[in-house]
Design a protein around this nucleic acid. Structure first.
Length: 1002
RNA sequence: GCGAGGGUGGCCGAGCCAGGUCAAAGGCGGCGGGCUUAAGACCCGCUCACGUAGGUGUUCAUGCGUUCGAAUCGCAUCCCUCGCACCA
């Protein structure tokens, strides 16, 4: 009966599927009311984020779903009704994107599907639609693997987020939030592909994935267009200069335009603007009313004067090739005192009289332009730009160090620069403190405007240029003060595992502003009052755990009946609506039974969004008693030390791992190699080790079970007083295991009791660890740490006694139940062979049933320490002893020890001494007592010693009982003496202390 | 840059919140021994240094500090991981 997971695991998968034992039903109290609720139904509702099947499942996902499974199995053993459901998240664009990439024949995508996820060639065509794609991975990957892993999921409740009934539920949620004024209409910048003419996600970008939105301030310089004729000439024209440093408006000395680029005169909203042609297009995308009137090159503005809207000064527009007409408005202002670029450009313009003349500009006019200082910053003189350039020895605009000089000046001026007196109310203020305020003020006065622009060029996968567009949207008002308060209450009321994640939740609530909760396209639920929009994926998945509680019962209800009132009645009760639907009320009871969510297991990455949203929405929509009780953070997975990557094929599929090692090994590795919130590293060598450990366990257990069976017809009689020797008498009985059990139980000796005490300790540790989701700590205790105890026991105990067999059997049975959540296949199989029923039909072991025995544990510690000490001496001296003499401390020493123990964990030396010296017999010994007391105080200090157990101990008897064992260990004669009557050739007996015998080897 | 978390012996990782039983669990690796024809598996012991008596010395990123006592508490420094939004 070798360990062969491939032989036993399929059997259990079938049994679980057929029996439907994980299909959870509310455990209702009797309805007639006769029985009081003494045995109130306990429940556990545990969830994990539903998978997003835009690709296959790998080993990292396997842990994500196995951790809650272990907890679910644990709570079931504790007697709870446990609900562990799962569904499929397919909302949004990733699946659509994946399908598009497949359909356009992208090599990368084909490789991921074919090579990484083993999609058969003739199946690829099924993946050409979003639902087909999702279905494939749901059925062939996720469900298949989850079943193989033995996840105890209630599959009746599965759904996808694109289902009609689910959408009804989400609609109810958003209508409710809308009614409560927690949704707000607004505008937001988005990536917009000018080729496809629609918004695109960061995922759709070919170039510029790191680009950020930048808010340019447009300073509305005025231009009297005297030069041109026609109807457009009469009005004042606005030339909006784009800048990121609006506070420099008083330092402007001139402006630049690209004479060769295309510009337009256009009506923008209510004003007439001169901007680059590209800018006009961008402004259209940014919710501006743009009407282009005339097109020309930048040359038209060169040599003109434009008026600074803040100072009223007229400044000259110079030609410059470095102006990028494709960035912002294509017209820039020049602040040479504070911009190294501008400083150099002005120098070069002054020097190049010829070029100026070509554009009809009087070089003398250019030479008259003087820099104007408007910001004071320590470490620079009047003109920071000049200093920054000269410090670096920069002489031309081609110098690469110009960039660095610019950054230097910008940073220092921003953080430490004080505005000059000309700024009135802002005079003397630091730029960083007042920039926003200054911008707003001038904007309100109409001097400034604004536009968005990327920090770098952005290209769509389709090849089109991506621009910043301002789109109408709906926001969730996560910055609403009351909502925030409730969210924080939800955080403080829940269990955060590990506790050190709690801070991040609070921080996220404070940091969240408004969240745009809709998209223009993708799968999902339409915004109920504006079906052009889809509720985006992070926003449609905040309270869906409630949906699990009823999902399998909704199939009988036509979707059109699932209106707003239906869910109101379901969640808020009969009083909430006029004519409550009976079906909704019935479902409400079910919901009420399972809610709240007891634990949600989810990646710690999701704290800043999903997990906090989850808390927000529960805090708003449900009453406090239904708020989440706990969240367990989960770490990520590595593969052979580096991050997994499906596009590089650097993943392991659960199906492959299960085929190679068996599901139990996969589970045990994932749960035992690190705690859930820590990162784990799938190293095949380590997994192989884990498999061997399980094999060893299996072999041991199988051996024991065989023995039990072999002994079923035979029994030995042990004497009743329970100690030591097994008797010789053998009695034939009728083959009931129980008979031997009863006999064995009555014959327990101290080694058996010790092992059982350790078993009790293990149960305590495992239970506490499981309550805290510490799967590693729990399995370490149950599996590895207990193996250690067993090793000691096998050395120590006489295993041929019935009591030893009984003990080992008891231990095995208990450990199998403790292991059942972790390795359900192996544990159930062995438990059934041993007892006739699977482990999961038993109960989680109760520490009360195998209580600790402090005294026996302490005695055993003494024996083990004595063994170590003797071994140590043998090793250091390099001798092979014939005789080992053990001297137990004299009676008077024991008396001193008891006094020390009396004094508690922090004994006061003086106090102890006076107590001790009160005894005339001890006083006689004077210094020896003093020394001993001091030494013992050192030993005892700070320790929570079990005084009773310690004083109860009979050291001599303990060592004598271990005599046979010690003789075997050292192949020597063992002699035990009380100090007072010692045979003591080397004069060692006197150094004996209580709990610390003296030793002599010879 | 901002926010959260972390740095433990050859490796992985407990311990730290509630300071003493911590030379510091457990696993892996390594060394020695047993079993075996042999290898593997399994079992036992060792695995910071020194030591012919159970001991001593020096360690828990670095440096200060609090304390009778610090891997554990406080401060500073260095380094690492994650998150920074409209996206799963």
């Amino acid at each position: 009966m070798d360990y062969d997971p491939q032989a036993i695991e399929p059997h259990w998968r079938e049994r679980w599927a057929e029996a439907g034992i994980y299909e959870a039903e509310p455990d209702r109290a009797p309805e007639d009311g006769t029985e009081t609720t003494t045995d109130e139904a306990e429940k556990t509702f545990i969830t994990v984020p539903y998978p997003y099947p835009n690709g296959g499942m790998h080993i990292g996902h396997a842990r994500t779903y196995t951790v809650p499974d272990v907890y679910a199995r644990y709570r079931r053993l504790q007697g709870d009704s446990v609900l562990f459901p799962l569904a499929w998240h397919i909302t949004g664009t990733p699946i659509i994107g994946a399908v598009e990439r497949l359909n356009s024949g992208e090599e990368d995508q084909l490789s991921i599907l074919r090579d990484t996820y083993d999609v058969p060639e003739d199946t690829l065509q099924d993946l050409e639609t979003p639902m087909g794609f999702a279905r494939y991975f749901i059925e062939e990957h996720y469900k298949e693997n989850m079943r193989a892993l033995g996840l105890s999921i209630d599959w009746r409740r599965e759904f996808t987020t694109n289902d009609e009934r689910y959408s009804k539920f989400v609609s109810w949620q958003y209508e409710t939030l809308h009614d409560r004024d927690l949704l707000e209409k607004g505008y937001q910048p988005v990536n917009y592909c000018t080729n496809e003419e629609q918004p695109v996600t960061a995922h759709d970008l070919l170039e510029g994935e790191d680009a950020e939105f930048q808010d340019y301030t447009l300073i509305e310089f005025g231009w009297e267009d005297a030069g041109s004729g026609g109807e457009t000439a009469s009005e004042g024209v606005v030339v909006p200069m784009a800048t990121l440093r609006p506070e420099t408006v008083r330092g402007v000395t001139n402006a630049y335009i690209d004479p060769g680029a295309d510009y337009v005169l256009a009506d923008v909203d209510s004003e007439r603007w001169l901007v680059s042609r590209a800018a006009a297009e961008k402004l259209k995308l940014q919710q501006r009313e743009v009407d282009v009137l005339e097109e020309f090159t930048g040359k038209r503005l060169v040599g003109e004067r434009v008026e600074n809207p803040v100072t009223g000064e007229n400044v000259l527009v110079l030609p410059a090739r470095f102006v990028d007409a494709d960035n912002a408005t294509g017209v820039v202002m020049s602040v040479p005192a504070h911009s190294p670029d501008d400083w150099i450009a002005l120098q070069e313009a002054k020097a190049d009289a010829e070029h100026m003349e070509e554009f009809g500009i009087d070089p003398a006019e250019v030479r008259e332009i003087e820099p104007r200082a408007i910001i004071d910053v320590e470490g620079f003189g009047e003109f920071p730009a000049q200093d920054a350039i000269e410090q670096r020895g920069i002489e031309s605009s081609d110098d690469p160090r110009l960039e660095e000089a610019t950054q230097d000046v910008y940073n220092r001026e921003f953080h430490a620069g004080a505005l000059s007196d000309a700024y009135g109310q802002y005079a003397g203020e630091v730029v960083a403190d007042v920039r926003d305020d200054l911008r707003t003020t001038y904007r309100e006065q109409g001097a400034f405007d604004a536009m968005h622009e990327f920090t770098e060029e952005v290209i769509c996968r389709c090849g089109g240029s991506v621009e910043v567009s301002i789109q109408e949207t709906w926001f969730l008002r996560y910055n609403d003060a009351e909502w925030r308060t409730r969210a924080k209450e939800a955080i403080s009321g829940m269990e955060a595992i590990p506790e050190n994640t709690r801070e991040q939740y609070y921080h996220t609530v404070d940091w969240l502003e408004e969240w745009p909760c809709i998209r223009n396209y993708g799968l999902g639920t339409k915004l109920p009052w504006d079906p052009d929009f889809i509720i985006e994926p992070l926003s449609d998945s905040t309270i869906y755990m409630a949906y699990y509680t009823i999902a399998h019962r909704l199939d009988d209800i036509p979707p059109e009946d699932l209106d707003h009132d239906f869910f109101d009645a379901l969640f808020y009760g009969a009083e909430a609506v006029e004519n409550p639907d009976e079906r909704a009320l019935a479902l409400g009871e079910e919901w009420d039974f399972w809610y709240p969510v007891d634990f949600r297991c989810s990646a710690t990455d999701l704290i800043p969004n999903h997990l906090t949203f989850f808390l927000y929405h529960h805090a708003e929509l449900f009453e406090q008693s239904h708020w989440p009780q706990g969240i367990t953070g989960m770490g990520m997975g590595l593969l052979e030390g580096s991050a997994m990557s499906s596009s590089k094929g650097h993943v392991v599929l659960p199906s492959d791992a299960i085929a190679e090692y068996g599901a139990d090994t996969v589970r045990f590795f994932l749960l035992n190699s690190s705690e859930p919130w820590q990162d784990f590293d799938w190293r095949s060598e380590r997994v192989g080790d884990t498999r061997r450990q399980l094999e060893r366990f299996w072999n041991r257990a199988a051996e024991l079970i065989d023995e039990v069976e072999a002994n079923a017809a035979t029994d030995t009689e042990a004497d009743d007083d329970g100690d030591t020797n097994a008797s010789d008498a053998e009695v034939e009985i009728d083959g009931e295991i129980d008979n031997e059990s009863e006999d064995g139980r009555s014959g327990l000796d101290h080694t058996d009791r010790w092992l059982l005490s350790k078993l009790g300790e293990t149960i305590e540790e495992a239970t506490e660890a499981m309550e805290r989701f510490e799967t590693r700590a729990a399995s370490q205790a149950i599996f590895f740490r207990f193996e250690d105890h067993l090793r000691w026991y096998r050395r120590r105990a006489d295993l041929d006694r019935p009591a030893a067999r009984w003990t080992l059997q008891e231990v095995l049975e208990t450990r199998l139940r403790l292991l059942a959540p972790f390795v359900p296949f192996l544990a159930n199989e062995l438990h059934e062979r041993l007892t006739g029923t699977p482990a999961e039909e038993a109960r989680w072991p109760d520490p009360e049933s195998t209580p600790r025995n402090e005294r026996i544990e302490l005695e055993e510690r003494l024996v083990s320490r004595l063994t170590d000490d003797v071994r140590d001496i043998v090793e250091v001296t390099g001798t092979d002893p014939e005789v080992v003499r053990v001297y137990v401390a004299a009676e008077w020493k024991r008396a001193v020890f008891e006094q020390v123990l009396e004094a508690g964990p922090d004994p006061d030396v003086g106090g102890v001494m006076s107590e001790v010296m009160a005894d005339p017999e001890l006083r006689e010994r004077g210094d020896a007592v003093n020394e001993l007391a001091n030494s013992l105080i050192e030993v005892v200090r700070g320790q929570e010693a079990d005084r009773e157990a310690t004083t109860d101990i009979d050291e001599r008897a303990t060592y004598e009982r271990a005599g046979g064992f010690l003789e075997r260990e050292f192949d020597a004669e063992i002699e035990i003496y009380p100090e007072e009557e010692a045979v003591d050739p080397a004069d060692r007996a006197s150094s004996a202390e209580p709990l610390r015998p003296a030793i002599h080897i010879e």
